[in-house]
Design a protein around this nucleic acid. Structure first.
Lengths: 221, 221, 221, 221
DNA sequence: GACTAACCGAGACGGTACGTCTTGTCTTGGG
DNA sequence: CCCAAGACAAGACGTACCGTCTCGGTTAGTC
């Protein structure tokens, strides 16, 4: 979940060669110090020097393995990310049940102040460095997005939801809402609101009970 | 749209007193230079000194009137924000038409690279300074949010949409999606996706055609 | 002792014309505030803004009448300089008595901590601004120097001291010693040391008791 | 003549420890740039940033090793101070010859415009910062003072000069005069004046040729 | 008694320098 | 070759003053 990002020793391309091996202790100390300092200072006031000093590590050891502060933060947060929401939703029941259960689990995590702080840190990191954004998207967002989309597609095949909806847009609305609540609105992310949004979305996705003639009016494209 | 932020001369509480008056030319030069530099450098590489130098202004003149880089950016962007999406959606037709028209207009703005860059800048500013976040929320997000919510409430009174939905959550899903697309996903915000999301949401909000028995299953709270 | 230095209303060249007259109250407040702040902060940490604020005066009122911080300090100190050492030494006795009495009076002033602080301030002012140095030399040092030299010349005419000595050099040694003690050596200026120096100098100036054959050896030029 | 002033590695108290060593090249570049800028701008208009920029060095490298502008100037000037006047006067002849030779050498240095400029700079530095004054006194003035006093004391033992004079006061008059000429009087320091002062002082120090009864009159203490 | 010019307080202005902080690189000595 | 320590060049930070420039408001004269 956080191998060297700069020179990833992908399998065999690096000869074991002479020289001291990378210190796992240092790597862990750096990521752990980073998580601590995110909690104490937030992303902006975090500094590479501060992490090195807290971790009892030379600054160069950080620069040797990570290209930027954002990447360190990304790895630090990813390392402790809960595994359950990197797994796709269950397929054992109705879409409603499965999606709701999965989103609830994620939302509960977002509600925790420590986790929310890390989400904000990681968001700030992404917003100032495209490479970090890319990494986070690949390793975090995309996994969730794909999992949810696939579950919806399965439901479509099962005839539970309309097959012609843009599932990507729907999933983005769910994940975007959560992000929006912990970053932009900084407010009370309530489980009730999440639930209510899911109500509307799932109802909107449901196959028309009869021959409802299309949304009809107001469509642009 | 960008009166002094530090000592807002709220109506009459500031006597015209002695001393040179604030230079409107400087204020405009600062905000204009800020917008230019956001486009050229992005928020992170923007510096107070750089703004001052580009604007032909002393750094103190910036620090005298704004408490942080974020606030300068907020004012710079707010000053040129289009007025139409600070106005509420029209009430002249179906909810579908009115909401769609309003969201389209906003989305078209988000698609413009210059505007999108400013949105990202303003988002970064908000994510590193709560005071800036607060200002932006008050002056930008809240206005839009309230406008949309009120339009939905009106529709509820008119029997167009279900009155028991959490309109706040729905609106946050719309605005959150847009934010999410220009910041986190950094991807192609397509009008088609926006439209598709609106389809699902509006359909989900529509009053049940008959005695649909409630979402029923999977509800948590 | 401290008329306007910038635009000295030398007699008649300025028509009395209409317009408000210079405020004597402001002038006094400025010089007085300057003396206070010299005591509290020393010359280096003194600022024009600080003087203006302490004096309850606009900065421009200072800049209108004085060209530099050094000049304000010069005037502030000159205004309260004791008159006795701006008068020449008495001519009522032996050179020894007259010179010693005059130098004692001056030295006693230099020993006072407040006065010594002002001397140091004025010295710093002179060392950073030639115009201030010039003004202080004219109004302070030169007066003393000329007075002492004249007294020694009178003694030479009276046959009390050797007429071929360089009285300027001797007087500079006296005044230079005092300056040196309060500025460079920052040490204990003791009246005893002054006395001892005067012993040596006056003895060295005394006419040779008999046909002493000249210093003879070691002369360079 | 200019080891680190902040953390002087006095012999063994600093373990050689890990970490990059202080760059001698930077140290020399800083002191050399300082001397250049003293000549071009004078002490007052000298700035740390200017020194750093001229030396091709970061500001921090200056602040790391010197506590103030004054100290940098002190080290810069001390480093190129001529060694001869930090050595005591010769003891190879009459006091007259030895003292005169030594003072001439010093005075010739003071006459040189570049050296005089440095003396003025160092004086200004001392006058605005006690710590700098202390350092300069220890490393420069005190050495000269002690050397001269010792030579006079030796002469006293040899019966060349009166043993009861305050040699400190006499030496201060010599050194003070020189300082006074280059700083306060800003005037023509002429070798002739120095010589004349030495005439008077040395004559005044000479043992009374016969039973001269004491200065007698006018003595205070 | 109005006019008018200069002075005054206040304080904003464009600048320069400050001393601190952080960045990313380089160097040293030890493992 | 890795690592901790830490010096280095670069440059942004926010503060303090500089000396200049409006602002209204206040005094004197002169019409």
């Amino acid at each position: 979940m956080s191998e060297p990002s700069k020179t990833p020793p992908t399998s065999k391309d690096v000869r074991p060669g002479p020289g001291r091996k990378r210190s796992e202790a240092s790597r862990l100390a750096i990521l752990s110090a980073t998580r601590e300092l995110i909690g104490e200072l937030g992303y902006e006031r975090l500094s590479i020097g501060g992490i090195a000093s807290r971790a009892g590590v030379g600054k160069d050891t950080i620069y040797r393995w990570w290209p930027s502060k954002g990447m360190v933060v990304a790895d630090a947060v990813l390392e402790e990310a809960q595994p359950f929401y990197l797994a796709p939703p269950a397929r054992s029941g109705s879409v409603d049940q499965d999606v709701r259960a999965w989103v609830h689990a994620l939302a509960r995590d977002f509600v925790d102040p420590v986790r929310a702080g890390r989400i904000r840190a990681v968001t700030a990191a992404a917003s100032e460095d495209p490479a970090t954004a890319e990494r986070l998207y690949e390793r975090f967002t995309q996994v969730q997005r794909t999992g949810l989309i696939d579950r919806l597609r399965l439901a479509a095949e099962a005839g539970e939801v309309r097959p012609d909806a843009d599932f990507g847009a729907v999933v983005d609305a769910i994940l975007g809402s959560l992000m929006y609540w912990v970053t932009a609105r900084r407010a009370d992310l309530s489980i009730a609101s999440v639930d209510s949004l899911l109500d509307v979305l799932l109802r909107g996705l449901r196959v028309a009970p009869e021959s409802e003639p299309e949304p009809a009016d107001g469509r642009k494209a």
